[in-house]
Simulated assay, not measured.
Amino acid sequence: MELYFLGTGAGMPSKERNVTAIALTLYDERGTMWLFDCGEGTQHQMLRSPLKASRLEHIYITHLHGDHIYGLPGLLTSRSNQGGTSPLVLFGPPGLEALLEPVLRLSQAHLSYELIYREVSEGPVFEDDRFEVLCAKLDHRIDSYGYRIVEKDKAGKLDAGKLKALGIPPGPLFGRIKQGETVTLSDGTVVDGKAFIGPPIAGHKVVILGDTRKCESAVALAADADVLVHEATFDGSLNDLAQAYYHSTALDAARTARQAGAKALIMTHISSRYQEEETRLLLEEARTEFEQAWIAKDHWSFPIRP
């Protein structure tokens, strides 16, 4: 599992940063990837990356401002041209389908796959046997959401050494015991599989927020996250401007991470007033409140480890 940042700028593209798009690669877990927001030029950024649109399974849109959605028509049609045939689920706020469908229809876009719309509201928006995705409303000028991606706990490791000590050789019995079954050996010994399995392995928790001012719902959504991705449009000296435009400062992001008990903070959605060297100001400011903080940049990746 890895986060790959395709666009990390705020409002409009600059020479150093494209507008928002973040990929979560789930190649080991699902053989697919999920995309969070799709600003203008995302498909171009993807061409310069190791990512393939054909492997997209879900797209999650945080809100309907242009710097988060204007890349959708191009990416969706290019996915067809690049051989994408599997269904693609598009999650987003009310109005996303009404906004996008006329563009696809009037441009006579041909999609070689099924495009499925899922309108989001607060609460669970997706769940299967491996992942759950939850959604909460943030504090922005229009409805803006954050997504909490929870990987469900995995079964504990089998203590193979303990089984071998009982004279149980590797083979089909190992598999049954690993499933927690109770098995009877040829000599009549009854083996409780649960006694040979370690504690469950905690799954990862990743939280990706849309544009927002600092708010309690962000803190709640990010509780105990392995990684929190939070906008940091301005530095603390521009707090009044951030409040007026419903955005966050680097200090706001750091305080949210600290209050939530997150393990790592990645700041994105950086104003173009901060050129590459000037982003150090944002990072230094954030680390006064939360040490495990980073500033994302385009084509930067962050592996998510236990």
Results as ranks from 00 to 15, higher is better:
194 K>P: 09
188 G>H: 03
205 K>I: 15
69 I>S: 08
139 D>Q: 13
146 G>N: 03
150 V>E: 15
47 L>S: 14
42 T>D: 04
202 A>G: 10
69 I>Y: 10
91 F>R: 04
299 H>N: 10
268 T>E: 06
176 R>D: 06
271 S>Q: 00
260 A>C: 04
188 G>C: 03
221 L>Y: 02
45 Q>A: 14
16 E>R: 08
81 N>W: 15
13 P>N: 00
126 F>S: 04
220 A>F: 14
47 L>C: 12
193 G>L: 13
177 I>K: 00
260 A>D: 07
195 A>Q: 14
44 H>Y: 04
60 Y>S: 06
27 Y>E: 13
269 H>L: 15
176 R>N: 03
58 H>P: 11
132 E>Q: 15
14 S>V: 09
192 D>K: 12
127 E>D: 11
130 R>L: 14
242 A>L: 05
186 S>W: 14
293 A>V: 01
222 A>K: 01
56 L>W: 00
30 R>G: 00
110 H>A: 06
109 A>R: 09
163 L>F: 12
110 H>S: 07
231 E>T: 06
205 K>H: 10
174 F>M: 10
250 A>Q: 08
241 L>K: 14
19 V>Q: 07
303 P>W: 01
20 T>M: 12
250 A>D: 08
140 H>N: 15
119 E>C: 14
187 D>G: 10
209 L>R: 10
136 A>V: 04
18 N>T: 12
63 H>C: 11
270 I>Q: 09
21 A>L: 01
55 R>P: 03
252 D>V: 02
94 P>M: 01
205 K>P: 03
43 Q>K: 10
145 Y>N: 05
262 A>V: 02
207 V>G: 10
162 K>M: 13
190 V>H: 11
302 F>N: 01
32 T>Q: 10
62 T>E: 09
24 L>W: 01
304 I>G: 01
71 G>R: 02
110 H>E: 12
57 E>Y: 02
170 P>R: 08
254 A>W: 03
262 A>C: 09
157 K>C: 13
118 R>L: 06
94 P>S: 13
8 T>Q: 03
